[in-house]
Design a protein around this nucleic acid. Structure first.
Lengths: 197, 197
DNA sequence: GAATTCATGTAACTTGTTACATGATTTA
DNA sequence: TAAATCATGTAACAAGTTACATGAATTC
């Protein structure tokens, strides 16, 4: 349901089209949420059927008409209720495909593993560089929307992107070190039972 | 597809039932993957239809018969191919519901936000404590399965759980500090344009 | 006597992805 | 003149969740 609530929240700043929502999401909150255009259109349809948004057509010459979505009072209420009701479990289930591959890492040559870990690190670095530019992007967005007070919260969420991606990078680097030092050949020491041996 | 590959990998250590797979996943790899029993049964069915696993029935008195799944040669091959083919994009799309709520945090009283952040921190602490015990659990699992060499990789993935959850906790604590210091009342300073004022 | 564990699933639903369809306008 | 942008979607598929169904054995 979160995409629909994210959409309601964004539309509450200013009514726009589905196409534009996609750009706003990609540019401004890709570090906490992502969505395909097809899903956005479907969820907008769903929101409309529930009466949470209404549409107004803006005719254009040569281009398809714009369908501009606005939040209704019902929609505002629904968003507000969702905001108040935090779930019992705040931590979502984890699904980390990259780690599944590491888990079964003995099936691959060490060199391949190192190569993939290095790719992983490079992708995170690229992501971190994007994040660096995002502070200005979200500040500008808040200014454009006439909601400068929201910067505070947007920056908090962006900060999470930084901290978590940095942590992932540290982990990947540790993995490389471990592969260098303790695998293969050198047997694994039972650190908590070292006295047994 | 990752659940199916995780299942193939686990079954390759030792054939078991769907019911038992659920326990193995919950106990040993909850920090990188989770799955409901209903999905496990469905995916086992799918794997069987593809010829990647076969079943053998073990009759029991009074209890439903056990259906024990084993990986076929085809299944081994499929898993191996999946392992070799890392995706182009190693970083999965991010979807963080908690952050969506923080993003629209101005809709809530500050006290409510602080309360939820504290809940968040507590849940992470509980998780970290579980992780602490997991080193022994996964080591025991590796011993029981007769695959002591796999400990190396299992520990690497568990390490990721630690590092990432710690990072999330640091972030949440930063949020609390920010709420204390800069919100509300105190206006947000444009740190990169401070000289303008 | 009630709740949990053991052991199997199915059906309906929600969420997210991929591929397809249309067609003018603008940029390289 | 080829590719990207603007702007709308639909259909089929894949993955994950929730709710339901059965029923003996064991533990509290």
């Amino acid at each position: 349901m979160s995409l629909q609530h994210a959409i309601l929240g964004i539309l509450s700043y200013k009514p726009t089209t589905g196409y534009d929502l996609k750009h706003i999401i990609d540019k401004n909150i890709s570090y906490i949420w992502s969505a395909k255009l097809s899903q956005i259109y479907r969820d907008l349809g769903s929101l409309e059927r529930k009466g949470y948004v209404t549409t107004r057509i803006e005719k254009q010459g040569g281009r398809p008409d714009k369908k501009i979505y606005s939040v209704t009072e019902e929609g505002e209420k629904a968003l507000q209720e969702w905001m108040i009701k935090f779930p019992q479990e705040l931590l979502p289930p984890i699904r980390d495909e990259f780690c599944i591959r590491i888990l079964f890492g003995s099936r691959l040559p060490v060199e391949e593993l190192k190569f993939q870990l290095n790719r992983f690190i490079k992708e995170i670095q690229a992501r971190l560089e994007v994040y660096q530019g995002l502070t200005k992007v979200i500040d500008k967005y808040a200014e454009d929307m006439g909601i400068p007070g929201e910067k505070f919260f947007w920056r908090l969420t962006l900060q999470r992107g930084f901290i978590c991606k940095e942590a992932e990078m540290r982990w990947a680097r540790e993995c490389l070190l471990e592969l260098e030092k303790n695998y293969p050949g050198k047997p694994l020491e039972d650190s908590d039972q070292a006295d047994k041996a």
